[in-house]
Simulated assay, not measured.
Amino acid sequence: MQAGTVLDGRYQLIEAIGAGGFGQVWKAHDPKVDRLVAVKVLTGDGSADSSQQSARFAREAAVAGSLSHPHIVTVHDFGSAMHDGRLHAYLVMELLRGKPLSAVLKDGRLPLPDAVRTAVCIADALGTAHGAGLTHRDIKPSNIIVRPNGQATVVDFGITKSSDERHDITTSGVLIGTPAYMAPECFTGTFDHRSDLYSLGCVLYEMLTGHQPFTGNSWHLINQHLNEQPAPLLKVRPAIPPELATLVKRLLAKNPDDRPSDAFEVILTLRKIDRRYYDEDSPSHGPDRYVRSAVSPQIAALRCSRRAWSCPQSQASQIRRQAMVTRAS
C-alpha cells in the first residue's frame, strides 16, 4: 500500500499513521460522505495466521460496531479488497485526533488529575462493553487514544471475548493479550470482566508512576502477575491520595473476587477522588498537592481544563455566578 491508493474503489489512502504486526493504519478520505477516516489494512499472505487475523478484523468490526459510546472508537465499515494481486481485509474507523497513551507516557508519569480522569474514560468504556457481555482482554496504553481535549478513547476490540461462543475466534492454548497488562487468571485461560479491571489497574499504575507495575520478559511477567506485588504507590509517589492508592491495590488484586465488582464501581470511586482533590468547584475540594509547574508542554497540550463529567457542575457554578452579578447590578 502507498499514499494515493484507492481501496475498494472508495477509500483513498493519504498517509500511514500507525503500524503493527497486523499491517498498517492509514489516514484516508471517504468521498462518499466526504470525511477523513482511519483505515486499518491487514497485510495478508493467505496463510492460516492471515486467516485468523482476518477473523479478528471481522470480529472487531462486529464488536466495536455494536457499541455506541463517546470513549469507544466508532467503526464505520469493514470489507476486503484486491491490491497488487493480494486480498487485503480492511477496517474503517473514525479518525481519532490525539496520541496513544503509550506515546504520552514516554514523557513520564501523568499529572494526578489527568491520570484520574483518563482512568474514568477507560472505565466508562469498559462498563459499556461489559454491560453488552464483552470483555476487551487487551487494555493497555497503546490501545487508548488521548484526544486533544483530554478525553480518552478505547480502541482495538479485535480479541474481545463475547458471551456468545459462536463469535469467539481465539485458539485454546494460545496466550491472548499483552503479558505486561494481563490479569493472573488469564494465564490459565479463565477470565471475565474483572480481568479487564486488573488491566486498567496496570494502566493506572503506569499513569501514576511512569512505569509498569511489573517488568521483564514474558516469563518474568507471568510469575510477577501470579505471585508478586508491585512497589507500593505511596512510596513511589507520596502525593497520591490514599483513596487512589487503595483503589489501584484493589484493581491489582490477584483474586478477581477481591477486585471492584464492576467498572461502574471504579468510576464512582474515581469521581469521588476527583471531586475531593482536584475539582476546584467542589465544596469538598481538599488540598491539591499536584505541582502545576511540573507539567510538561507535551502533556499540557493534551490536557482539558474541565472534563465531560465535571461540565454540568461547572456550568451550574457559572450560572450561579452570573445570577449573583445580575442581582448585584
Rank of each mutant, 00 (worst) to 15 (best):
K32I: 06
T209I: 02
G216S: 10
S305I: 03
Y278S: 06
T5Y: 09
A28G: 03
A103W: 08
I319R: 13
E265R: 11
P312V: 08
Y90T: 00
A152C: 08
P113V: 04
R276P: 08
I139H: 06
A294P: 00
A316H: 13
A301R: 14
E280K: 11
D8A: 15
Q2V: 07
Q52W: 15
E206Q: 15
T326S: 11
A89N: 12
E165T: 14
Q315A: 14
I273T: 02
V116N: 03
F191V: 07
L268S: 15
L13H: 01
S310V: 04
I145Q: 07
I145G: 03
Y11S: 04
G21L: 01
A81W: 08
A48E: 09
Q298H: 13
H71P: 02
R35Q: 13
H71R: 12
M182A: 10
A123T: 10
C202A: 15
G108R: 00
G21N: 02
C186M: 15
A58V: 11
A239H: 02
G150Q: 07
P238N: 00
L226F: 03
A308F: 13
L87D: 04
G9N: 05
V154E: 07
Q24E: 14
H76N: 06
V266L: 07
R166F: 11
L234F: 01
V75W: 01
Q2S: 08
S329N: 12
Y278E: 10
K40V: 06
V266H: 06
T43Q: 12
A28V: 05
N255F: 06
L175T: 14
N217I: 02
L302F: 03
Y277T: 04
Q53P: 00
I176F: 11
P113N: 06
W26E: 01
V203A: 13
P232F: 00
I139Q: 05
K254I: 11
F157N: 07
Q52I: 09
R10D: 02
P148D: 07
V25E: 09
A152W: 02
E228V: 12
G158F: 02
R271T: 09
H76F: 15
L7A: 04
S261V: 09
V116L: 05
T135M: 14
S317E: 11
P230R: 04
A183C: 04
N217H: 10
S51W: 11
L175W: 12
I273W: 02
T326I: 13
